[in-house]
Simulated scan of single mutants.
Amino acid sequence: MATEDLSKTSSLPPYPQMIMEAIDALNQPEGANKSSISKYMESKYGEMPPGHADLLTAHLTKMKDSGELLLIKNNYLKPGADAPLKRGRGRPPKPKEPLPPGVVLAPPRPRGRPRKDPNAPPAPKKLKPSAGPPKVSKTGRPRGRPRKVQPQLVQNGVEA
């Protein structure tokens, strides 16, 4: 019994071919919906493989994305000869000037920050700038918290 099922599925033409055939045979000006395509395929080829609905959906989506079919109001139809080409998302690229013959381009630079050289000597430590006179604002006081004043010892041993 299982060999009969395999022989039936292997004798079926590819799904894109069956889909195009169904759209041609249904010959509707507004196109054919998924259920009518499925019914036509089942009537012509008999019992379809298990998972037929999922396979049909996947192939219809793939054909729609590649531009082989148009989806208008849930109906699939073949694009006409005067139909515009399907564009991808985003801004279209600028047209490129053809290069003169004999010109060889360098390989493009990789994106992102270049990796460190593992064999390079370690970089010297950066020195902190010396603490010079404090910066003074318009009010005449230096910025920030005032420094702690350390008590100075007087010579006779009493603090000031």
Score class of each variant (00 low, 15 high):
residue 23 I to Y: 00
residue 99 L to G: 14
residue 29 P to I: 08
residue 154 V to C: 13
residue 77 L to S: 02
residue 41 M to V: 13
residue 158 V to M: 05
residue 57 T to R: 10
residue 114 P to M: 05
residue 153 L to M: 14
residue 24 D to A: 13
residue 85 L to F: 05
residue 91 R to L: 05
residue 142 P to G: 04
residue 12 L to E: 07
residue 84 P to W: 10
residue 10 S to D: 09
residue 82 D to I: 10
residue 34 K to M: 09
residue 58 A to L: 13
residue 27 N to F: 04
residue 8 K to I: 03
residue 39 K to R: 12
residue 128 K to I: 07
residue 60 L to E: 00
residue 111 R to I: 05
residue 55 L to Q: 13
residue 57 T to C: 01
residue 83 A to D: 15
residue 80 G to A: 12
residue 133 P to E: 14
residue 121 P to E: 10
residue 74 N to A: 14
residue 29 P to C: 05
residue 72 I to Y: 15
residue 81 A to H: 14
residue 27 N to E: 03
residue 115 R to K: 12
residue 150 Q to F: 08
residue 17 Q to E: 15
residue 93 P to E: 01
residue 76 Y to P: 02
residue 156 N to P: 01
residue 132 G to C: 03
residue 141 R to I: 04
residue 104 V to R: 11
residue 14 P to C: 11
residue 155 Q to I: 12
residue 11 S to P: 00
residue 95 P to S: 10
residue 96 K to I: 10
residue 26 L to W: 04
residue 146 P to F: 01
residue 60 L to H: 00
residue 98 P to Q: 08
residue 82 D to M: 14
residue 121 P to A: 07
residue 23 I to C: 03
residue 31 G to A: 01
residue 160 A to T: 14
residue 6 L to G: 10
residue 59 H to E: 12
residue 159 E to H: 12
residue 152 Q to P: 10
residue 62 K to W: 06
residue 75 N to A: 05
residue 48 M to V: 07
residue 160 A to Q: 12
residue 102 G to V: 06
residue 12 L to R: 12
residue 41 M to C: 10
residue 38 S to K: 06
residue 6 L to E: 09
residue 134 P to N: 12
residue 40 Y to H: 07
residue 109 R to L: 08
residue 1 M to C: 09
residue 60 L to D: 00
residue 50 P to H: 13
residue 25 A to H: 08
residue 21 E to V: 06
residue 67 G to C: 07
residue 126 K to S: 05
residue 14 P to F: 08
residue 50 P to W: 07
residue 16 P to L: 06
residue 106 A to G: 04
residue 27 N to S: 09
residue 131 A to V: 03
residue 51 G to T: 03
residue 158 V to P: 02
residue 98 P to R: 14
residue 71 L to H: 02
residue 139 T to P: 02
residue 74 N to V: 09
residue 5 D to K: 05
residue 86 K to T: 11
residue 138 K to P: 01
residue 99 L to A: 15
residue 48 M to I: 08
residue 122 P to T: 04
residue 48 M to H: 08
residue 159 E to S: 13
residue 101 P to W: 00
residue 47 E to D: 12
residue 122 P to L: 10
residue 17 Q to R: 11
residue 150 Q to N: 08
residue 54 D to F: 08
residue 130 S to E: 11
residue 111 R to V: 12
residue 142 P to R: 06
residue 157 G to R: 07
residue 146 P to R: 09
residue 43 S to I: 03
residue 130 S to N: 07
